[in-house]
C-alpha cells in the first residue's frame, strides 16, 4: 500500500539504515546467483531475478524445477549455498560486515519472516484452533498484540476472504477452498510486505480454485507484492505483472506474462506450455 520507495524520489528518500542499499528504488526481492543444493544434487543453479514492490510475480515450470525451493529460500526456510538474496533491501538470513557473512540468530530470522507471508499448497492450518484462532495466533504470540486488537483484525480479514460465518469452525470442518482462504487471512494478519504463494490451488477441487484466486486477485488490486508459484496460466496472464519460467534450477525465460504465454521464445518453455495450456 503506502510505499516508501515510490517512483521518482531518488536515493535518500528511504529511511537510510546502514544496510547496503542496492538501488535508489529498492526491489522488494532481489536474487543474485542463488545456488541451493540438497546433498550432492544442485536444485537451484544460479537464479537472478528482481521483484518490484506491488508487483505480482508468477513463477512457473515443470515439477522438480526448484520453484518451491526458491520460494522457501526467500523466507529462509531453506539456507542458500551461494549467491545473495535480499528482501526489501535486507540480506535474508545473514548479516554482511565487510566481505564476511554472519548467520542471523533465530530471533533475527523470525523478525525477518514477520514481514513475509507464506501460503502453502497443503494449507498447513493449525488443526487444533478455530479459523479465528488460526488468524489471531501470530499477531498475539509474535507481535504481542492484545487479543482484542488481534481478534478485531482477524474478523475483518476473515470477512474479507468471505468467511464471516465460518470463524468458529475448526479446519477439519472447512472445505479445501475455505481452508486456503483462512490460510491467506492468517498470513495477512501479520501485515506482511510480501506474500509468497506455493501452488495455493493445486490441492483444490477444480470448482474451489476460483474462490481462492478471487481472493488473490483482490490482494493484487490492493497493491500487495506477491510471488506466486502456480499452474493457473489464466491467473498469470490476467493478474501477473511478470512471469518467470524455471526449469532444472535455472531461469529459462522471463517477461510479461501475456508475451511469454502467447509467444514463448525458448523451446523448453514452448514444450512446457503446450502441456499445461
Amino acid at each position: 500500500m503506502s510505499e516508501t520507495a515510490a517512483t521518482g524520489t531518488t536515493g535518500t528518500g528511504t529511511s537510510g539504515t546502514e544496510e547496503d542499499t542496492v538501488e535508489p528504488v529498492l526491489p522488494m526481492v532481489k536474487a543474485e546467483q542463488v545456488h541451493k543444493s540438497f546433498g550432492h544434487t544442485e536444485v537451484l543453479k544460479g537464479i537472478d531475478l528482481e521483484v518490484a514492490a506491488q508487483e505480482v510475480f508468477c513463477l512457473v515450470g515443470p515439477s522438480g524445477s526448484g520453484k518451491s525451493t526458491f520460494l522457501r529460500c526467500i523466507n529462509h526456510l531453506e539456507k542458500i549455498n551461494a549467491g545473495r538474496l535480499y528482501v526489501d533491501g535486507r540480506l535474508v538470513g545473514y548479516r554482511q560486515k565487510g566481505d564476511r557473512l554472519y548467520e542471523l540468530r533465530e530471533r533475527e530470522v523470525a523478525e525477518q519472516r514477520k514481514d513475509i507471508g507464506m501460503v502453502f499448497q497443503r494449507f498447513n492450518l493449525f488443526p487444533h484452533m478455530t479459523a479465528l484462532q488460526n488468524v489471531m495466533e501470530a499477531p498475539v504470540q509474535v507481535k504481542g498484540e492484545s487479543k482484542a486488537v488481534a481478534r478485531e483484525r482477524a474478523e475483518r480479514l476473515l470477512e474479507r476472504v468471505g468467511l464471516a460465518d465460518r470463524m468458529r469452525n475448526y479446519p477439519a470442518q472447512l472445505s479445501g477452498g475455505q481452508q486456503q482462504r483462512v490460510a491467506i487471512a492468517r498470513a495477512l494478519a501479520m501485515e506482511p510486505k510480501l506474500m509468497l504463494f506455493d501452488e495455493p490451488t493445486s490441492a483444490l477441487d477444480p470448482e474451489l480454485v476460483g474462490e481462492v484466486l478471487d481472493v488473490m486477485r483482490g490482494l493484487a488490486e490492493d497493491g500487495m507484492t506477491m510471488i506466486v508459484v502456480t499452474h493457473e496460466m489464466g491467473f498469470a496472464r490476467e493478474v501477473g505483472d511478470s512471469i518467470v519460467f524455471m526449469d532444472d534450477g535455472v531461469v529459462v525465460e522471463s517477461g510479461n506474462p501475456r508475451d511469454v504465454l502467447t509467444n514463448p521464445q525458448h523451446e523448453r518453455t514452448q514444450a512446457f506450455l503446450s502441456k499445461v495450456l
Partner: peptide
Amino acid sequence: EAAHALGMSG
C-alpha cells in the same frame, strides 16, 4: 514450517 513462516520462534 507454517509457524516459522509466521515468525514464531522454535
